[in-house]
Design a protein around this nucleic acid. Structure first.
Lengths: 276, 276
DNA sequence: GCTTTTAAAGTGGTCAGACCACCCAGTCTG
DNA sequence: CAGACTGGGTGGTCTGACCACTTTAAAAGC
């Protein structure tokens, strides 16, 4: 918060007399609940990642082997793995293996959705957060973006124009466009936060895809954003991005109102699905 | 992203012949890996939260009972609980019980720390994110803050002045001050994101507490921020907050440089601890 | 009677080993 | 050669026992 330093009474040294062997109770982290063995697993894997033994996308040993190697039961190992999987650090694929996650890091996966249920997150709050994050990232991308990023952005814009008649396909490039900006911003943390929010936003079956009609307009907007970034006009990039998201929000609000109205009128629950 | 609507081919209907009741496999979420039963537990608890059966801070039934109730093994139940604990939704206390988390929601606990190890997050990136988030929240607090928030902010500032000689105690009020602003911003999502970042920042044993000398200055800064918010001067609040965090960053950078220099000079590893 | 000690009950943590479910690849069949 | 089949590897779940931590209440000591 302010100036500096001080320990945080870690779990590090115990007495520091020097010769106190490698007691069983070492490898701690943030601790906070979560039992001993779970953390042992987490830290072990963390260490393997940090020293390069394990890289994103790679597979960890089979549970039975790994458990034996760590001298713990398979059950405990699984607890630890589950912990990391919950945080999105690892991906478990039944019948295949367990892997270190790769791709855009997402903080806590559905975490936000659950937390939302607890603390009553509103849709507008998510948009407010997105507006802030993506706006800033657009500006940063304009300042720090590299040629390669510009190239990819241009490509995605082109693809968007090419798929204005295929909403499903269009969406893919839309998402990629935003992710590329995130990458170009040079701050993976902001990118992670964005990823977390957007995934929560589209959580639960309903995905925002676009009335076919407006896809061309949408592509135009993205093109403008691209140009601002390309010409390193950060304030303009931010302004356009913020406007873009604001409109997306308005569009969703409209949609929701429409659905509500229709539902109220026909009394057909629509089963939670909305035809495209 | 753009305009609207479309299903997200949920796991919902199987055949959609129409009369397919409320099959057991409804309540889905983001899915993505994580086995069937785990999600069953998660969704069950989620449902209990949403319909008010369970509120923050409350205790869930003992594992043995709860497992029987859900008709699954205790092991599976524990997997689900572990999952939610990893996301910070639940707190497990050995020998006591399992509870729904309360207090400032934090997205993925040490999640960021782990992700950082994977994607190489840098300290400056965290500060950049904080700068953005806290700056915006300060502005929002100025616009939306309520009398009660102002009162508490004033209180914390007073406490800060009162504890300029006790860094440990001071820090508590410092943190509370920032949390109060987050609350006053009226956007719990931004607050969560901030909580996540700051906790990752202070993660690993090292906690930023302040050279005793500068605590008074720090308190002054907080007082100014408080005044800006109190007078609903949002741009000023944001400016001050950003400057405040920028300085905190500079201070930490200095500190790190000092430590490095000292370490190189004396070759004393300092054990990872830094005296206050 | 009051404090201290001890015991027991309640709850999560770990373990072991068996068996189920899924994915994939290599093999057999037509 | 395409398709069905089968086996091995891997994660998913179950059972039931036992360990460790907390809290509370009874028992012992003063």
């Amino acid at each position: 918060m302010s100036a500096t330093v001080l320990i945080y009474q870690g779990y590090d040294d115990f007495g520091s007399t020097g010769a106190h062997v490698l007691k069983p109770t070492q490898t701690e982290t943030t601790h906070e609940s979560e039992s001993h063995l779970t953390m042992q697993v987490v830290n072990h894997i963390r260490a393997m990642i940090e020293d390069g033994t394990l890289k994103p996308g790679e597979k960890i040993p089979p549970e039975r082997e790994f458990a034996q190697e760590l001298k713990i039961s398979r059950a405990s190992l699984r607890t630890g793995i589950g912990y990391m999987a919950a945080m999105g650090i690892m991906k478990v694929r039944h019948g295949v293996g367990t892997f270190i996650a790769e791709g855009p890091p997402e903080i806590g996966k559905s975490s936000l959705g659950l937390l939302g249920a607890l603390h009553g997150f509103k849709s507008w709050q998510m948009f407010e957060a997105r507006l802030l994050l993506e706006g800033k990232m657009a500006a940063l991308a304009a300042e720090r973006g590299k040629e390669e990023h510009f190239t990819q952005l241009a490509e995605e814009v082109a693809e968007m124009y090419a798929t204005v008649d295929d909403p499903e396909e269009y969406l893919i490039h839309d998402v990629r466009f935003h992710r590329t900006i995130a990458k170009a911003s040079g701050n993976p943390i902001l990118a992670s936060l964005m990823e977390t929010i957007t995934s929560a936003l589209y959580d639960g079956r309903r995905k925002t895809v676009s009335l076919t009609r407006s896809l061309r307009d949408s592509a135009d907007v993205h093109r403008e954003i691209y140009r601002a970034i390309r010409t390193r006009n950060s304030t303009e990039a931010q302004r356009l991005m913020e406007r873009h998201i604001q409109r997306a929000k308005d569009a969703q609000d409209d949609e929701e109102r429409t659905v509500l109205r229709r539902r109220k009128a026909t009394k057909a629950p629509t089963n939670g699905k909305i035809a495209v």
